[in-house]
């Protein structure tokens, strides 16, 4: 049974991944192209500027795959693999938790997927949002990666604690107050956490790089306009660049906003698909398999949480019989 439920989770993830890829191909890839163009132009200006000032420029990136590959099967395999993995994880979480709650299987699946969306993506995004190419300094990738993964882990952990709190309190104060108390406690803890974590622009490596062309001091790593930061004019291709003069614009704010907005919608789409598809498959699989007596048992539905006894007899008896 476990394997068949995991396969249903992975299948839901596959559907979500195909949808997510379609969305990304239509909405994200044009923005990625703009960002890559911006990046190439920026690298060229930085190289010229550093040469004119007799400084060493950062090495340009090498290209392993063409943009055609990256923007089609590359992005497809990445998003689909991610979604399948998340679908499988939702199924694993369901299998770990389902014996403990008298919830309809699909409702529990929705709850898990909702918490997954928050913990895996949205809560980390609030502090360290998704970025298109051209944003993110190569020399801080290790620190940024550690911060991001730490925030994913902490978000999931705090969400777990909050959910546990809500479950513990619900019989004492009722479902809604329990959820509210847990949510407020969570927000306080999460707020303290992200207030304490450093903004990317404040990383030591970024502070140190602010004396270089194109790395002006900022709160984030979003590229600032490239200016002549030297007190003397520079000559590039016969043109004189005065001190403080802008040679290349900062990253387009509209491209950045759209990319992040679409990134959020893409994850929302993926997790919603996993929730609905996996929930529907679960209901069919588990309630459909339950003994025929079940429909009569559901008649006395009195709980606000939509409690149902349907899957319980089927699940509890064997597990109680399992360990002697």
């Amino acid at each position: 049974m476990e394997i068949r439920i995991i396969l249903r989770g992975a299948l839901s993830g596959l559907v979500a991944g195909v949808l997510g890829f379609t969305f990304a191909k239509i909405f994200a890839e044009p923005l990625v192209s703009k960002a890559v163009d911006y990046e190439y132009g920026r690298d060229a200006v930085l190289t010229a500027l550093n040469q004119a000032a007799h400084r060493t420029a950062a090495p340009a990136e090498t290209e392993t795959f063409s943009r055609d590959i990256q923007s089609t099967i590359g992005v497809a395999s990445g998003i689909i693999a991610f979604s399948v993995a998340m679908g499988a994880l939702v199924a694993v979480a369901y299998l770990v938790l389902h014996g403990r709650f008298a919830l309809r299987p699909s409702r529990l699946a929705w709850l898990i997927a909702g918490l997954g969306f928050l913990g895996v993506y949205l809560l980390p995004f609030i502090k360290y949002p998704a970025n298109p190419p051209a944003i993110g300094h190569p020399f801080t990738i290790t620190t940024r990666g550690q911060l991001y993964l730490a925030l994913v882990g902490c978000s999931l952990f705090l969400l777990g604690l909050a959910a546990y709190l809500a479950v513990k309190l619900r019989h004492r104060v009722g479902v809604l107050p329990a959820v509210l108390i847990a949510a407020v406690s969570f927000l306080v803890a999460y707020g303290i956490l992200i207030g304490w974590m450093p903004p990317l622009g404040d990383l030591a490596a970024n502070v140190a790089a602010s004396n270089q062309f194109g790395y002006a001091r900022a709160v984030t790593e979003t590229p600032q306009p490239i200016t002549n930061i030297l007190p003397v004019p520079l000559v590039i291709d016969g043109k004189t660049i005065a001190p403080g003069q802008i040679l290349y614009p900062g990253f387009d704010a509209d491209v950045l906003w759209k990319f992040r907005w679409y990134s959020v919608i893409n994850q929302l789409l993926g997790w919603t698909t996993i929730a609905l598809a996996f929930g529907a498959l679960l209901d069919r699989f588990i309630i459909g398999r339950a003994p025929r007596v079940v429909p009569g048992g559901v008649a006395g539905e009195d709980s606000a949480a939509g409690e149902e006894s349907a899957p319980e007899p089927n699940e509890r008896v064997p597990s109680a019989a399992g360990p002697p």
């Binding site: 990304a24 994200a28 795959f65 990445g78 998003i79 995004f125 998704a130 970025n131 944003i135 893409n266």
Partner: peptide, 20 residues
């Protein structure tokens, strides 16, 4: 190598992971 990184590169950015 940068094979995996480059292959899933766009997905990595769009899914919210730090990159570059």
């Amino acid at each position: 190598t940068m094979v995996v990184h480059e292959w899933v590169h766009d997905a990595r950015h769009f899914l919210g992971f730090p990159c570059h």
